[in-house]
């Protein structure tokens, strides 16, 4: 693999405290993180600060990462599974500047992975921390708009309405019509939003070796799943949970088992399907796997062969 760990190019920006947040704020976030870990899946309110990035653009994940990260860490940031999407680049640059940490695109080499909308395809290992950016932490919000009410529903384990909603989908469409942010039950107690990851990724949360931390900056909530914790996607005996499948493998690396992005190649209905996890796809290509369109112009443009 051509890219591994990149030492932070320039020294840390000393105008700011290490990792930007002041120490009192870090302590506050750290205390919230420990409670989140102690009660898996429960949303801990925290004094979310106003960050120099817009609310809704990862400020929750950034605050969690800032409270956790140290100079020894190696950080990977992905958005939609890709390391080179604009938001991922922007957040990676932020931490390289304020924390001076090394960054990487290699999943296995990262000690902290901040993500928006995906879990990497390669299984995470013990000791790794996955930090999710969360826009709406409340899985019940679409059923009940009031925070005061949803908090009571969690307190009493009143999740009947959620199952009713899912079953209404089955009655109408024959399937649960939720494809991302698919709710899960954590440690048999709290219904939790996995953030807008595709439901394809839900099974990776179950009994993961890594620690999973969730930060919702605008909504001011932190929650967590410790390693080796039961995470069950809500379903019914007669309609068990299932994940997305594609009719064809990745056009670049031939992976038959990864989550695929659909790329429109022309305005005549032409399209190709490629791995959403760019690092996974590159790794497979480096190992000699070849997809149907790897040698073509369209394939070359996407595979970043020109770089």
């Amino acid at each position: 693999m051509q890219k591994t760990v990149t030492p932070s190019g320039s020294p840390r920006d000393e105008a700011y405290n290490f990792a930007y947040l002041d120490e009192a704020t870090k302590r506050m976030v750290r205390r919230a993180l420990l409670k989140a870990v102690a009660v898996p899946g429960y949303q801990v309110p925290f004094g979310s600060r106003e960050m120099p990035l817009a609310r809704g653009w990862g400020t929750g994940g950034i605050q969690v990462t800032a409270a956790v990260i140290g100079p020894e860490d190696t950080l990977k940031v992905i958005d939609q599974g890709a390391d080179d999407t604009t938001n991922a680049v922007s957040i990676r640059r932020f931490f390289a500047r304020v924390a001076g940490v090394a960054t990487t695109e290699a999943t296995a080499e990262a000690s902290i992975i901040q993500t928006r909308h995906r879990i990497p395809e390669a299984p995470l290992e013990a000791g790794q921390i996955l930090v999710y950016q969360v826009p709406q932490p409340e899985p019940l919000r679409k059923l009940e708009s009031s925070e005061a009410e949803t908090r009571k529903m969690h307190a009493w384990g009143d999740y009947g309405p959620m199952y009713v909603r899912l079953y209404e989908d089955i009655a109408r469409f024959g399937h649960v019509a939720t494809t991302y942010s698919y709710p899960v039950l954590v440690n048999g107690r709290y219904v939790m939003s996995p953030s807008p990851i595709p439901k394809f990724d839900n099974p990776k949360m179950h009994m993961s070796a890594a620690l999973q931390l969730f930060g919702a900056g605008r909504e001011k909530r932190i929650y967590a799943i410790p390693p080796w914790t039961e995470v069950k996607s809500l379903d019914f005996e007669d309609h068990p949970f299932e994940v997305q499948k594609w009719d064809e493998p990745c056009a670049l690396c031939g992976a038959p088992d990864s989550y695929l992005d659909e790329v429109i190649t022309d305005d005549q209905g032409g399209r190709m399907f490629v791995c959403s996890d760019t690092h996974y796809c590159e790794g497979r290509r480096d190992a000699g796997h070849r997809g149907r369109l790897l040698g073509t112009d369209a394939g070359r443009a996407l595979a970043r062969d020109g770089e």
Binding site: D79, R116, L260, D261
Partner: peptide, 11 residues
């Protein structure tokens, strides 16, 4: 921001 992972699920 890109949402194409979620949108792909919807598609």
């Amino acid at each position: 921001l890109p949402h194409y992972v979620d949108f792909q699920g919807e598609l």
